[in-house]
Write a protein that binds this DNA or RNA. Structure first.
Lengths: 156, 156
DNA sequence: GCATAAAACTTTAAGCTTGAAATATTTTAT
DNA sequence: ATAAAATATTTCAAGCTTAAAGTTTTATGC
């Protein structure tokens, strides 16, 4: 997918391909840097961070299936990550009365405290890593990506 | 990392965080779609496609370490993917005379033929998935991402 | 009520991913 | 010439990831 520094040949349809390649390389570059820092500074991983970030927004918790949909990963995947977070005491599962198939997943107090610290560092890193992107470009880019998302969500 | 549809609180430094979240969600969304289609239509995977795309550009082949650097993944990772491609007859390793630590990796004829077909479909998919992005936005976005890359490569 | 479908979640197998340790080879410094 | 450092790659253990199959519970149709 990462088709690299070499230019994509020109022609019809090549503009969007070039955009996709750039987009993917940018996100992989930043992702790799974040992964490394999360490991070094906090001995954690990107997937764990993702799950905790999702739960942090919702103190009452989320269903596994909501978590999976929200994070754009498979449900089996979430099971494993949550298992590990539970065993580390950062996340708790609560069986519900209403529907015994589901369980509410939420951050523990320890998880909440722990995430707040990591999230602050994370925000700083992003500011640093994207520091060279001007405020105006950042807003413009965000706008374009937002409209991409709207279009995506509204497709057949 | 994917911090989701909910708005990031405003404040200093939040603009870039919001940009990062949008960027990551966009690329994960497209990546998931491509992965699914590669699997369904060609019974292959994104990492395999990435490796073959890298090699397709360079008929004489690449060193493992170049491949790893180019694809932004670890060298141990590339070993496994190339192993599988070799066992499928799509890729070949050639020990070199000059330096016996290294080996040149290249597409076989079968690999080249196979990749050309998949790449054509891939380009069509991207055109479809990014179809709602206007030509002008695509060029503008690409420009911003290109300048991001230049800045990144030239940092400290 | 009862069979059947649907939903929520877990398990499994195969493959991807990383960082660290191990191996083999070449280069550099003494 | 030899020891030490550097380079290229592989191996390994742990964790991430997916699709598919399995389990349990709830909803639906008759």
């Amino acid at each position: 997918m990462v088709a690299g520094p070499l230019p994509v040949p020109s022609g019809p349809g090549k503009d969007r391909l070039r955009l996709w390649i750039r987009l993917l390389r940018a996100s992989r570059t930043i992702e790799a840097e974040l992964r490394e820092r999360l490991k070094k500074e906090f001995d954690t991983t990107l997937p764990r961070f993702d799950v905790m970030a999702a739960l942090y927004r919702v103190p009452e918790g989320m269903l596994m299936s909501d978590l999976s949909r929200f994070l754009l990963v498979s449900n089996g995947n979430v099971t494993g990550i949550v298992d590990r977070l539970v065993s580390e005491g950062l996340v708790a599962r609560a069986r519900r009365n209403g529907d015994r198939r589901t369980s509410m997943v939420r951050l523990t107090d320890e998880g909440t405290k722990s995430f707040a610290i990591i999230a602050a560092a994370h925000e700083g890193w992003i500011g640093e890593l994207l520091g060279k992107v001007s405020e105006e470009d950042a807003r413009r880019l965000t706008g374009m990506l937002t409209s991409f998302r709207s279009n995506w969500e509204g497709r057949e």
